[in-house]
Design a protein around this nucleic acid. Structure first.
Lengths: 149, 149
DNA sequence: AGCCGAGGTTCCGTAAGGGAACCCCGCCTG
DNA sequence: CAGGCGGGGTTCCCTTACGGAACCTCGGCT
């Protein structure tokens, strides 16, 4: 999509959208994260058109978020998260958390997250990187940074 | 955009995308969060077409993420975050954090976040809601939840 | 030799974004 | 009280990008 490119804006949210903001991209990343790594499997899981899936995968690989790895002597490939891509997962978990809170119906959340360190079912909780206290909408002031040209 | 509706999927990420996944929507929310609340101001700030801005604002209001408030005796309106919308800000901060880490150039991040509780410049750090330890891509297992029908 | 299956590519029809012009309506000014 | 202004949209047309289905390719298998 996106006729207007966001990447030129002095805004990290806009720049991030330039990488993963196209339709389907977050869901493709979710699939790869969850272990659905092959073209046909992703296509079947999401019901996305093969054309668009090709475009999205290429873009995500170009952006260094996914890498394409052969898994057979034949030309067969799997897509895996790079370190840059794995770092996006916390954003996906924040999205999932919001959906769980505000959009899950009676049935409850469709997916649960078990934390390795404590073994319990939990969710992400955004904390300040300095003091560890909660960091929500009203807990911050926005200031111009060095790259605010 | 989105010809395919994501809302029916048993996935909180997909459902969240149905609310804020259309092009421009996260940037509109960022603007409102940052205090740019009026139609013409948002339009000028983003360079979005007025038609699309109207559509997005209506959708976000319908979804209960924004509310439309009069600010004058004349028919003049401002858009504000609802509680549901304010809760989305942690997702925006996660996006901004990723852009700051991976896409900011030499100049550094365009925006800094000052945390009220400690007064320092920081960023969001995703922590487990139970044990408070870091919660990144490799720190969780995904399990089917009650709403996984 | 012929088939299969993964991973794409091509083609066409339709819907959604971009841009610019236009409209409405309450106030303000002369 | 006529005309202008400014916020907040709406309308129109053009172009681009998605959706879907068909087709292609290449290695291996029977």
């Amino acid at each position: 999509m996106q006729r207007t490119r966001f990447g030129e804006m002095a805004c990290s949210i806009a720049r991030t959208l330039d990488v993963i903001g196209e339709p389907w991209s977050p869901l493709i990343l979710r699939d790869v994260w969850a272990g659905v790594r092959r073209f046909d499997h992703i296509q079947a899981d999401l019901g996305i058109s093969r054309k668009v899936l090709t475009e999205r995968l290429n873009h995500l690989v170009e952006q260094g978020v996914l890498k394409r790895l052969p898994y057979d002597a034949r030309p067969r490939y799997e897509y895996h998260l790079t370190a840059k891509g794995a770092d996006l997962v916390e954003m996906l978990m924040a999205m999932a958390r919001w959906g769980d809170r505000w959009l899950a119906g009676e049935a409850g959340p469709p997916v649960l997250y078990r934390h390795h360190a404590c073994g319990r079912i939990g969710h992400v909780d955004p904390r300040c990187s300095h003091c560890g206290e909660p960091m929500h909408a009203d807990d911050v002031d926005l200031l111009p940074g060095p790259g605010s040209a």
